[in-house]
Design a protein around this nucleic acid. Sequence first.
DNA 1: AACTTAATCAACCGCAGCTAT
DNA 2: GATAGCTGCGGTTGATTAAGT
Length: 227
Amino acid sequence: MEKRGGSSGGSGSSVEAEVRKGPWTMEEDLILINYIANHGDGVWNSLAKSAGLKRTGKSCRLRWLNYLRPDVRRGNITPEEQLIIMELHAKWGNRWSKIAKHLPGRTDNEIKNFWRTRIQKYIKQADVTTTSSVGSHQSSEINDQAASTSSHNVFCAQDQAMETYSPTTTSYQHTNMEFNYGGNYSAAAVPAATTDYPIPMTVDDQTGENYWGMDDIWSSMHLLNGN
DNA sequence: AACTTAATCAACCGCAGCTAT
DNA sequence: GATAGCTGCGGTTGATTAAGT
């Protein structure tokens, strides 16, 4: 028995080696990117071992798919994408990966987060206003399925309000295709990364802050490979 | 300036399904 | 058919940052 979860999951594919958890460091990212560039992805458990990462295969897969893949687009979900998300969610419910397949470059995790943090919140607010006027609806708790079935009505009825929460007007911490290590990595991880990896940084025009973009990461990887 | 609350996102966990043995 | 391993999915949580008081 015990074929589920445990063996493959975060909790221990092996006993002998300690498994790292928590935020990925830049070093780990580079190792993973480098390894996949040379060997391809898949067979994540053995990949994690072969690459020398103290991570579960599951964790490596997640990191790659949600963050490191070169074609991942992050932040700034467009109104068109919002519309697609809402339509597909109304059709399929919480089938995030299925929905993500229709949004090139978007991950199921990002869509899920987007739904839960923006749309659900919005529906919740809309629900409060409608129920307060209608009266007897006591559920302030938003259930996903209810959200999906009501979303069409809610959004069709309140397009204007949608505009106000649209990510195009909502500031994102992360801009497209770049990840700001100062912002995304634990404080402990950053100094080591900055000293250990002399990777050219991109300078933000507006803030003047330095950050590593995806391009920087990839170019540094090529350097490491001697390309 | 200090503190609190809200918002956002990355990552973990558990479960289910598939495939190989 | 039973078992074991792996992958993928969806839900949830913790950390960090931003906004408000």
